[in-house]
Design a protein around this nucleic acid. Structure first.
Lengths: 213, 213
DNA sequence: CTTTGTGAACTTCTTCACAGCT
DNA sequence: AGCTGTGAAGAAGTTCACAAAG
């Protein structure tokens, strides 16, 4: 386990920088200033420089950051220079959309198994991926070297499925259910609650608060 | 009683409290302490009390918070005691999943129009909702009193579609694309970037940092 | 007793401002 | 000149600790 020495929001921003850099690379750009990176992401230049400086000295004074080198470094930093094996748990509408989503494959995030509890689905396949019984998750995860579970079961199932995941080799969970699951010593959970995002949007709209505050 | 200033993360947590309270209500509970609300959401009791205190004095000393009254208050606060009309922009896999998603309807968040640019889709309907041309969004949004757009177009389309939305009566955008859109005076944007959530997960996993905090 | 509501202390995060390099 | 990297200042957010109330 490591001690973290940077603000947590920095990691999220690194993913934005990477995406922006890849777009710049495609456009044939060789260098980019913190000023421009900031503008393209709705941040301040100082923020961009600080964020990057936590992980190295990637820039050249007077010149900016070399686009392709920085992109490569961020990819490495974010753990995206290798493949990750994922499983989907809960094959509903959202789950199906996520499995088919191109954005994951482009990043080397590969679904290699789908788990569900519906006997009608178990044994069949979706998008070329086998659908298996959730009960078999620990065994399969180990065999297939699955490190991340994407959780899209109904809220009522979330806690019990999480317990099963805890008993496996899986180290990360991307939780799309409204149940709030908490990280443990062994598992890192990221909650992505879609309804709740909308709910905080309605809060701001109903008070006519715009532009962030 | 009504404060004008509170931490931004508080709003997100209010949505968690509401969900927890509704579960407690269903279980027949009459009161709940900040201690218990905190435990159920992976927070501290002081945090819960502070969050709630920004918006009123809902608790009773020695007794805790009355579940149903607090739930009602939070619902009102979050702007969820009325209906909101939404439109989906971009009917891909993710869009289809979101339209069918029960969680929105349960909260009074109703999709009343779908916009796409594919001529094959325009004029047909999905899930009982008309599919219209994005170009007609400003007109339709006004007619149908649509206040929120859920954006699920490909990244390459995101910026131009956002410009169209800006020219309409729409006040809030839930952005599922990887393009980072920024709020303006008139529009409040919430970015929900699924791939990027997963990317920050791989960052932590590849460094063996656990315990999310 | 129990538990809230809250100033004060503390921690975390962002911005400022400028030294120093190209 | 142009631009990064960074210590210091400032802002934002969280936790502490306790008075007050049932």
């Amino acid at each position: 386990m490591q001690r973290i020495s940077f603000p947590l929001p920095t990691v999220e921003r690194l993913t934005y920088y990477l995406r922006t850099l890849e777009a710049l690379l495609l456009a044939g750009r060789e260098n980019v200033s913190s000023e421009e990176l900031a503008r393209l992401n709705g941040l301040t230049a100082a923020q961009v420089r600080k964020d990057l400086a936590y992980f190295g000295s990637f820039g050249q004074k007077g010149k900016g950051y070399p686009v392709s080198v920085l992109a490569e470094n961020l990819k490495e930093l974010l753990g995206l220079s290798r493949e990750w094996f994922l499983c989907l748990v809960g094959l509903g509408n959202l789950g199906r959309a996520l499995v088919r989503f191109k954005g994951f494959a482009e990043r080397g995030l590969r679904f290699v198994a789908i788990f569900d509890k519906d006997p009608k689905k178990i044994g069949t396949e979706f998008y070329g991926i086998n659908i298996l019984d959730i009960a078999d998750l620990p065994e399969i995860a180990q065999k297939q070297k699955i490190e991340i579970a994407v959780l899209t079961v109904p809220e009522s199932e979330a806690k019990s499925v999480y317990e099963v995941i805890k008993c496996s080799v899986i180290k990360g969970v991307l939780n799309f259910t409204t149940a709030s699951l908490t990280s443990t010593e062994k598992i890192f959970v990221k909650n992505v609650s879609i309804v709740q995002e909308l709910e905080s949007l309605t809060f701001y709209l109903s008070r006519n608060i715009v532009g962030g505050r």
